[in-house]
Computed example of a mutant assay.
Amino acid sequence: MDKISESPVAEADRPDAPKATGRTNRSAALIATAVALPVTLLVAALAFANLAPDTPAATPDPSPTTPQAQSTTPVEMAAPALAERPAIVCRALLSQLPTAIRELAQRPVTAGPEQNAAYGDPALTVACGGTEPEVAPDEHLVLVNSVCWYTVEGPDDTQLTTVDRETAVTVRVPHFYGEALQWVSPISRTVAESIRSATPAPSGCTS
């Protein structure tokens, strides 16, 4: 009787044979995924950081000594009609006023640029040709750079008016800027150079 030869069964086809190749492929895929995922996340994070706008630096609170954006809107001021001589005096004064008082740049005014000026935001104003105040003998007057000023404290500003010049000049300094006399000092120099002294000056104006 002839012997029937048995064909060898491939090891991979045997039910009990370990599928080494499949496990190897799956392990390699898992490792590749584990490596690729952090790289993908890193690339995405870098791309987002490049697209995101820079965080703006904190803006310091405005103060009289801190440069700040200033409004260019004209400052509302009255411009009463002046007689010939005061009008000439005021034009001379306005032509000599500085373009800035300390760090406060000059701003346009709504009326009377030949007699009015404004600086900064909030506005410090200079008005020429107004009415000189009545000053009692015991009133407190302040002499600044040879110009005598009568001061009145208001709720929002300090008003200073000359009382020793042929044409009166009034300066309003917002309380925001602190001590008013430090701001009126450069204006006083221009007033002294542009407007003649009145005679006689109030007794409290002597230095």
Rank of each mutant, 00 (worst) to 15 (best):
E139M: 04
A69L: 15
P108N: 09
T40M: 11
F176R: 04
K19D: 14
V126W: 02
P174W: 08
A198N: 09
P15N: 11
A10Q: 12
A32K: 10
G112Y: 06
A118K: 07
P74W: 00
P56E: 08
Y150L: 05
R172N: 10
R91C: 03
T73R: 04
G112E: 02
Q68C: 03
D16G: 09
V171A: 02
T72E: 03
I195V: 15
Q115N: 07
T59E: 14
L51H: 05
G204S: 05
S194Y: 04
A117C: 03
E114Q: 08
A52K: 12
D164R: 09
Q182T: 13
Q182C: 00
P133M: 06
V39I: 15
G130I: 04
F176E: 05
T170S: 12
Q106N: 06
S146N: 15
A78H: 10
Y177R: 06
P60M: 07
R107H: 11
E84F: 14
D54F: 00
A168I: 06
A32N: 09
R23A: 13
I31L: 15
E166W: 02
A180M: 01
L104N: 03
T206P: 06
R85A: 14
A100V: 10
V163D: 01
A105G: 13
T72P: 00
R165Y: 04
C148N: 04
E166I: 15
P200R: 11
V147K: 10
V126P: 07
P122G: 03
S203D: 14
A92K: 04
T59C: 02
V9N: 00
I31Q: 05
P122M: 01
T162I: 08
T110H: 07
R189T: 15
A192E: 10
R85M: 13
T199S: 13
P137A: 15
D16P: 06
A36D: 02
E179A: 14
A78Y: 03
M1I: 12
A29Y: 12
D157R: 08
K3S: 12
A32Y: 06
P200M: 07
T170P: 00
V126Q: 08
E139V: 07
N145W: 08
R107V: 10
P98K: 12
V147L: 08
P62L: 10
G154M: 09
G204R: 01
Q70Y: 03
V109M: 00
P67M: 07
T65M: 09
E179Y: 11
E179L: 13
L30T: 08
A100H: 09
P155E: 03
A10M: 08
T65D: 15
P18F: 11
F48E: 12
F48H: 09
A34H: 09
A201P: 08
T73V: 14
W149K: 06
A52V: 14
T65A: 12
A12Y: 11
T158P: 06
T73K: 01
S185R: 10
Q106K: 15
E193L: 15
K3V: 15
A105H: 11
P133F: 01
E166P: 03
A105F: 06
L82I: 06
S207A: 13
P38Y: 04
A44K: 05
A29W: 14
V171W: 00
Y177K: 06
